[in-house]
Design a binder for these strands. Structure first.
Lengths: 214, 214
DNA sequence: TTGTCAACTGACTATTCAGTCGGTAAGGAG
DNA sequence: CTCCTTACCGACTGAATAGTCAGTTGACAA
């Protein structure tokens, strides 16, 4: 858990620590890529956030694209792993859906930059980097739950494919707008713990009520 | 309705038409900004799409930012106008909500690039350009409907602010992912007329079921 | 026909940015 | 202490990109 936020200073003196430096760069890059996407992200801005020289990016990650890959990989790992180990097959569809949503929302609440990174990737690069198994399987899992729910009559007649997209939107859109909609509620920050928990509840409630057979 | 798609050619000969040229540039810019956002958009790429010289951008729009403004303004005008002239106050909340959603979805179905443009603007520039009245009022209208519905007992106990964001997400996420999720259904393009109509239905059904008092 | 103005062009410039390279020094091994 | 490896630095370079400008061409009026 030795993960310094910006520079790598330990008890007053700067230390030469390859791992720590890489982690610092990755974190700074995550922020920059989340806000600007690959093309508009500036390697100099990333370096400035870290406190190490810009050339360290190229030393550890070869080039801008290598750094981008590394960020995508690290960001995604948590999400994919969490959702894959859920074991939802034996559960009734409504419970499975709730578990799935709670895991998803927990994950992105922990790393709120992830949705923004994914959307930049999707829009700018048409998701080239994700065509290697990842996010596809996430959607597939959700679609499977919905299909089962419809066929068992637990859910109303809905199109699983369309609904999966819309459900993901309900969960994730919040995080995209978060940077934008700071002025809205009375001083409440959208990414505060309380608001994130409320969003989790509200999103789950909306979705479960929305799909259930009435 | 004289809006040529790329060059400005009329019965075989290129014409000098200021208005048409501006329109051509705006359309090309809309595409470029939608895919890449302000910073990553290339003025040369925009010019290449139009067939006119790059310098025309500066001739008519002063600079890249001026062009960006013009695109945001034109894209938004339709949406804001449509939603403002809805007159929903006298309707019951559930009908008002359905009308609101149908108008919103019609609008973005007509201009599917709009959500992506808004997304880029929100994330990259924290919505600086929208802090001039526009999208704020859209959310406000939706929140008002939800508040009324809750207080009248037509809708279940939900947080109007949170739910407004989530509802917008349900409607708009589809368009953001559209570029990405082309491989998914069996050859169906997400932006085909049939799929857009289905999305409108599915989104409205999900939301109405989701908010209604059960 | 001629003059004028506005639409339009393409080559040019200044700047910004990704990526490089020669060199420095920390710190462990012998 | 002396090497030697490697983390690290900052000035540099070449390519790309926003923005400019001097000049050309087409339309229309007089």
């Amino acid at each position: 858990m030795t993960r310094p936020k910006s520079k790598k200073i330990e008890n007053g003196k700067p230390v030469r620590d390859a791992e720590a430096t890489q982690a610092v760069i990755l974190t700074a890059a995550e922020e920059e890529f989340a806000q600007h996407g690959f093309t508009a992200a500036r390697t100099e801005a990333i370096a400035a956030k870290t406190g190490v020289a810009k050339s360290m990016i190229y030393y550890y990650f070869k080039d801008k694209e290598g750094l981008y890959w590394a960020v995508l990989k690290r960001s995604h790992a948590d999400l994919v792993q969490t959702l894959q180990k859920l074991e939802l097959e034996h559960l009734s569809p409504d419970i499975a859906l709730e578990n799935f949503l709670r895991a998803l929302l927990d994950c992105v609440s922990r790393n709120p930059k992830l949705p923004t990174i994914m959307f930049h990737e999707a829009v700018q690069n048409q998701g080239k980097y994700y065509k290697h198994s990842d996010s596809v399987s996430i959607d597939a899992a959700l679609i499977a739950i919905l299909e089962k729910g419809v066929s068992e009559g637990v859910f109303r007649q809905l199109d699983p494919f369309q609904s999966a997209i819309n459900i993901m939107g309900t969960c994730l859109f919040y995080f995209i707008g978060a940077g934008n909609i700071q002025q809205f509620p009375q001083g409440k920050r959208l990414l505060s713990k309380a608001m994130l928990e409320q969003h989790t509840q509200e999103a789950i409630a909306l979705i479960l009520a929305g799909v259930r057979q009435s």
